[in-house]
Measured scan of single mutants.
Amino acid sequence: TIDDAFRAIERAIQAENEGRYREALKHFLDGGEMIVTAAEKEASQKVRNLLLHKGKEVLEWAEHLAEWILE
């Protein structure tokens, strides 16, 4: 659900702030994927587009974090 997705993102932010970057990455990926999944089930085109945009933002952040971890 969207609530689960945002809880995962909150955990990711907390982990990132505490320097637990790999854990943060996992939570960002989980949250982003949950948002995209919820968007695919959404009946309203406007809400679907907003959710897809937010999911994409979260997944892009996860990608940047992963690249930073690997440096």
Score class of each variant (00 low, 15 high):
Phe6Glu: 04
Leu51Arg: 00
Leu29Cys: 10
Gly55Met: 13
Arg7Gln: 08
Ala43His: 12
Leu51Tyr: 05
Lys46Phe: 13
Ala43Ser: 10
Trp68Cys: 07
Ala43Asn: 10
Trp61Ala: 04
Ala38Asp: 02
Lys46Glu: 13
Glu16Val: 15
Lys56Tyr: 09
Gly32Tyr: 15
Leu59Met: 10
Thr37Ser: 12
Arg11Gly: 03
Glu71Gly: 13
Ala39Cys: 12
Thr1Phe: 10
Trp61Gly: 00
Thr1Trp: 11
Ala43Tyr: 07
Leu51Gln: 00
Gly31Arg: 04
Glu23Pro: 01
Ala24Gln: 03
Glu16Ala: 15
Asn17Gly: 08
Glu63Trp: 14
Gly31Gln: 05
Glu18Thr: 05
Lys54Leu: 15
Glu18Phe: 06
Glu23Ile: 05
Ile2Met: 08
Ala12Val: 03
Gly55His: 12
Lys41Ile: 07
Ile35His: 03
Gly55Phe: 14
Arg11Lys: 12
Ile2Asn: 03
Leu52Arg: 06
Glu67Ala: 13
Glu63Ser: 14
Trp68Ala: 06
Ile35Gly: 02
Leu25Pro: 00
Glu33Gly: 08
Glu42Arg: 04
Trp68His: 05
Leu51Lys: 00
His53Ile: 14
Phe6Tyr: 10
Ala15Gly: 03
Leu52Gln: 03
Ser44Ala: 07
Leu51Asn: 00
Glu40Gln: 13
Arg20Asp: 05
Ala38His: 06
Glu33Asn: 14
Ala15Asp: 02
Arg22Glu: 13
Glu40Leu: 15
Thr1Met: 12
Ile35Pro: 02
Glu67Gly: 10
Ala5Ile: 12
Glu18Gly: 06
Gln45Asp: 11
Ile69Glu: 01
Ser44Leu: 10
Thr37Tyr: 09
Gly55Ile: 10
Ser44Lys: 06
Lys54Trp: 15
Asp3Tyr: 14
Ala12Asn: 01
Glu67Asp: 10
Asp4Lys: 11
Leu50Thr: 07
Gln14His: 10
Ala8Cys: 13
Ala38Ile: 13
Ala66Glu: 06
Lys54His: 06
Leu25Arg: 02
Val36Arg: 12
Arg48Trp: 08
Leu65Met: 05
Lys46Tyr: 12
Gly32His: 15
His53Ala: 15
Asp3Glu: 13
Gly55Pro: 02
Leu25Met: 07
Asp30Phe: 14
Arg7Leu: 09
Trp68Lys: 05
Phe6Leu: 08
Ala15His: 06
Ala66Tyr: 12
Ala39His: 02
Leu52Glu: 03
Gly31Ala: 15
Phe28Met: 05
Glu23Leu: 04
Arg11His: 07
Leu25Gly: 00
Ala15Phe: 10
Gly55Cys: 11
Ala38Leu: 15
Lys41Asn: 12
Leu29Gln: 08
Ala66Met: 06
Glu57Leu: 14
Asn17Cys: 14
Tyr21Gln: 01
Glu33Ala: 14
Trp61Lys: 04
Glu67Lys: 13
Arg11Ala: 07
Ile35Ala: 02
Ala24Ile: 07
Asn17Leu: 13
Asp30Glu: 14
Glu40Lys: 14
Leu25Cys: 08
Ala43Leu: 12
Leu59Thr: 03
Glu18Pro: 01
Lys26Glu: 08
Glu42Val: 14
Asp3Ala: 14
Phe28Asp: 00
Asp4Gly: 06
Glu10Ser: 10
His64Cys: 12
Glu71Lys: 12
Arg22Thr: 11
Gln45Lys: 10
Leu65Ala: 03
Glu42Gly: 05
Leu52Ala: 05
Leu29His: 05
Glu63Asp: 07
Glu33Trp: 15
Glu63Gln: 13
Arg22His: 11
Ile13Ala: 07
Val47Ser: 04
Gly31His: 04
Val58Phe: 09
Gly32Lys: 06
Gly32Arg: 07
Lys26Trp: 09
Val47Pro: 01
Ile69Asn: 02
Ala8Leu: 15
Leu25Tyr: 09
Trp68Val: 05
His27Arg: 03
Thr1His: 07
Asn49Glu: 13
Ala62Tyr: 04
Ala24Leu: 07
Arg48Glu: 03
Ala15Tyr: 11
Ile69Met: 09
Asn17Glu: 08
Ala43Asp: 08
Arg48Asp: 01
His27Ala: 06
Glu40His: 14
Phe6Thr: 04
Leu50Gln: 08
Asp3Arg: 14
Leu51Asp: 00
Arg22Lys: 11
Gly32Val: 15
Met34Phe: 05
Tyr21Arg: 03
Gln14Lys: 11
Gly31Glu: 04
Leu50Met: 12
Val36Pro: 01
Glu16Asp: 14
Ala8Lys: 09
